[in-house]
Computed example of a mutant assay.
Amino acid sequence: MAFRRLLKGQVEWDLLEGVAREVGRRYGQSDLRVEFLDADNWLSTPFVVNGRWFVKVMTDQHSLLHAVLTTGRNLGAFSSGREGFFEHVADPLEMAERELEATRKMRDIGLHVPEPVEAFAHEGLGVLVVEYLPEFRTLSDLTPDEVGRYAPDLFSALARMHAAGLAHGDLRAENVLVARDTLYLIDATSVRADAADQARAYDLACAMAALEPRIGPRRVVAAASEHYPITDLLAAEDFLDFVNIRPDHDFDAASVKGEIEKNATAGA
């Protein structure tokens, strides 16, 4: 557990208090209520202020871990026969600014994301502030029937993002929320602007990986096919084995590949 805390870059309590007070000062809140969420965040320490603002605090340790994970993901992309497309960030503030920028771009094209507020530096920390979505559930919290109902919405959102030249880069069940009967995307990461095709295929592979354990490969590929041509599904197939070795995905890659191949053969 000590090693896990080291990797996750635990923030000292007085620094977290200072960030909460700064958030209150910036938004005219003298009485503060801070709630820490039971979330397994490796790249930030999150909390909620006054039930309105979701705050992510990022340290140098988080930035270092981000660099390590980025290198590993790029190596995984190389192993899939593609050029690495994940971007490094220089420091905690840049981490916060990149995520804020990605969230703003997604919101600007009409995707459902928490409203971006700002990113700022505080005592060497990077701080991201976005709208807090109360009473949300992650994709993992939904029943199989609910997952099946929202699966087309997920692929629709991805297709809209990709058509605008954007990519998520870290799509997994924990980064897909349902609140107010609406599907939201959170925690987009940095990908190279000149590697849109690779990032698009990776996003699609991650979406199928997140959905398959809940609704099965046939329904997953059918839902994806509503918004993507078979050529995109075949490109995503190249990333499925890489996605399957990530600790945050556990799915039947062979069955998903089989459904994609079946669709490709039927459409030939």
Rank of each mutant, 00 (worst) to 15 (best):
N175M: 08
R137A: 06
F242T: 09
A157G: 14
G76T: 07
F86P: 01
E146L: 11
E12F: 07
E12G: 06
E99V: 00
N74D: 15
D181F: 04
E226Q: 14
F85E: 08
F3P: 03
V243L: 03
D170S: 11
F3R: 13
V34C: 09
E99P: 03
C206K: 03
G124Q: 11
A102N: 12
E87Y: 02
A163S: 14
D241N: 07
T182F: 01
V256R: 00
L166K: 01
L15Q: 13
A151C: 08
R107T: 12
Q29F: 00
Y228S: 08
A20E: 02
R172A: 10
G258T: 14
R21H: 07
A159D: 06
D145I: 03
P46G: 11
H162E: 11
A196V: 14
E97Q: 14
E237N: 15
V68E: 13
L185N: 04
E22A: 10
V129I: 14
P46Q: 10
N41R: 14
R218I: 08
L142E: 13
L240G: 01
V19E: 01
E99I: 02
E83Y: 01
A77S: 15
S63H: 12
E146H: 12
A119I: 12
Q61W: 15
D203K: 04
S156Y: 10
N263Q: 15
W13N: 14
L125N: 08
I245P: 02
S190Y: 12
T71I: 11
D40I: 12
E212S: 06
F239C: 10
V89I: 13
A264R: 04
L128T: 05
S190F: 07
A188R: 07
P217Q: 09
V89P: 09
K8T: 07
E259L: 04
P92S: 02
A167W: 02
A209S: 09
I186W: 03
I230V: 15
